[in-house]
Nucleic acid binder design. Sequence first.
DNA 1: CTGTAATCCTGCGAGC
DNA 2: TGCTCGCAGGATTACA
Length: 280
Amino acid sequence: MPELPEVETVARDLRPLLAGRKVVAFWVGEAKLRRPWKRSWSGLMAGLRFGEVRRRGKWLMLPLESRKPTAVAGTLLVHLGMTGQFTVVPADDPWADHTHFVFFLDNQTHLRFRDIRRFGSVEWFPAGQDVDNHLGEKLGPEPLDIPAAPFAEAMRRSKRTLKAILLDQAVVAGVGNIYADEALFRAGLHPKRRGHTLTAAECDRLRTAIETVIARAIESRGSTIRDYVGGSGLRGGFQNEFAVYGRTGEKCVTCAGGIERVVVSGRSSHFCPVCQPAGG
DNA sequence: CTGTAATCCTGCGAGC
DNA sequence: TGCTCGCAGGATTACA
């Protein structure tokens, strides 16, 4: 399930494969995704060239330029949802089922968007509509470099559970269920602790735990639980380094305790009751 | 300001 | 073997 490290890996993979490539044809399927693809957008794609792929939180931005004076025609805003796959493959590779978008490129390759559960989305933002601004309004800072003071302030004034706060994209952008659990373990904090109960030291530990977990996961090209693959089809490796996620009933990596699972914020949360004591 | 639950969706594995 | 059922959960919305 793509969170920031997976989306970052896709962005890094796609960047060199797409830069300067021209769209010679475009195909979009009938199945509904999380957000509608408007018919009128389809006709605009052919003839445009991809610019530099970017990422913000769990969102991918793919600028497309028109041939004339390399003016940006618009930007594709993509969310991989739960099972989205965005890959560049040889044109003669067989089409997998649940393929929803195909960009035919000028070097006998395809950029394909596949999404089994259809929680993902692809949208077109014409130049002039500020995509960064659109995302900026609902997203907090990137988790690789979290400003300490605002993070501490957000904790101090929140009575929500830590799990709910970490999943809130407006507090930190890009953290999902897996990395929230892993960060809380590394910080030694129970997922049901409330933000305002954290000491300054605990708050600092949590902030650096998020940064560390996300950074290490990116180094491992993300985590492949089921369907996730990078932009060139490679799987991730961080699932082999999980301390708590999906390890219910197994032994804690640092103590003799057993990993437990509780539901917080409607999401399953995995933690070690010894290393992450309740209360505080 | 909280939390909970439903909504979208398909595949998989456990249990019978 | 084949069925049902629970679960996976990102973002959004409705409701208590």
